[in-house]
């Protein structure tokens, strides 16, 4: 009989461990795409261990937080996530976000300052300074925008009206919050930024445009894949993420 795999754990309203790995593991904090939920990261959590543990961010309005209201603005969501997830990072954590989640990961990392992650991996998103212009077409017509985003994500939604309606409702809510993002130029980040994009993601922003977002280390790469590098049933670039996690060092540790 094989050893039982540790079952998923809900830490609190904000944090979910799809595959707990124990206190020695580095945390890879994962921020879902618009309309997405923690299940997106189940395969990644299985693939990225044993020394890296995925912590999936639980956003309001979906899954177990179905009855919780999403904050009205991106700034409020950033503050709420930072407060909720901040205490769960551990040493030298790395953030991973894709699409809407990439922007959220970056802004939450900025908000946390010296308590924040050592690195942010931003996948499939325009750089923060380009975000408002990039989402204008989606947020101008949220209903059509949601349908289009759903198609871009390449996810199969069950051919079930009620399920589709719920998925689109979450997607529209996230799009509405994304439309309130305002980029305020300020001191660039000090954490490392690694920008990724999928080679089959038509219309994707070149990941190199994130270079100006940090004074810390910066890398960018185009990888095989579509708009969502990590998806339900697809672990995405687990080896790359594991390497980035195990190599990450917080800048403030160097200051001592």
């Amino acid at each position: 009989m094989t050893t039982a795999v540790a079952r998923p754990v809900v830490l609190d309203d904000w944090s979910y461990l799809p595959r707990p790995r124990g206190p020695q593991a580095r945390r890879l904090v994962c921020f879902p795409h618009a309309g997405g939920d923690v299940g997106t990261f189940a395969e990644l959590a299985a693939a990225v261990g044993p020394d890296v543990e995925v912590l999936a961010v639980r956003l309001p309005g979906r899954g177990g937080r179905y009855s919780h209201a999403l904050p009205g603005t991106f700034a409020e969501l950033t503050s709420a996530v930072a407060a909720g997830v901040g205490p769960r990072l551990g040493r030298d954590a790395v953030f991973y976000g894709q699409s809407f989640g990439a922007l959220l990961a970056y802004e939450v990392a900025l908000a946390l300052g010296f308590r924040g992650p050592a690195a942010v991996v931003a996948a499939s998103a325009p750089a923060p300074a380009d975000w408002e212009r990039a989402v204008r077409s989606v947020s101008a017509d949220p209903e059509a925008g949601a349908e289009r985003l759903l198609a871009e994500c390449g996810l199969t939604v069950p051919d079930d009206d009620a399920v589709r309606a719920m998925v689109l409702a979450v997607l529209r809510a996230d799009i509405a919050v994304g439309a309130t993002y305002r980029h305020r130029p300020g001191p660039p980040a000090r954490f490392a930024v690694h920008a990724l994009a999928g080679d089959a993601d038509t219309g994707a922003s070149p990941p190199g445009t994130w270079a100006g977002t940090t004074t810390g280390p910066f890398t960018s790469a185009v990888l095989p894949g579509g708009h969502l590098l990590v998806a339900p049933g697809d672990p995405g670039p687990a080896d790359l993420l594991r390497t980035l996690c195990l190599g990450a060092r917080s800048d403030h540790h160097h200051d001592r």
């Binding site: 799809p18 299940g39 399920v163």
Partner: peptide, 25 residues
């Protein structure tokens, strides 16, 4: 899971959206 208690919540047990859809079907 091996057993489910009356007070258990689907998501508190670690369930997520895609699993909820599967359970309903």
């Amino acid at each position: 899971v091996e057993r489910v208690a009356p007070t258990d919540g689907f998501f508190a047990l670690g369930g997520y959206s895609q699993q909820a859809v599967r359970a309903v079907h």
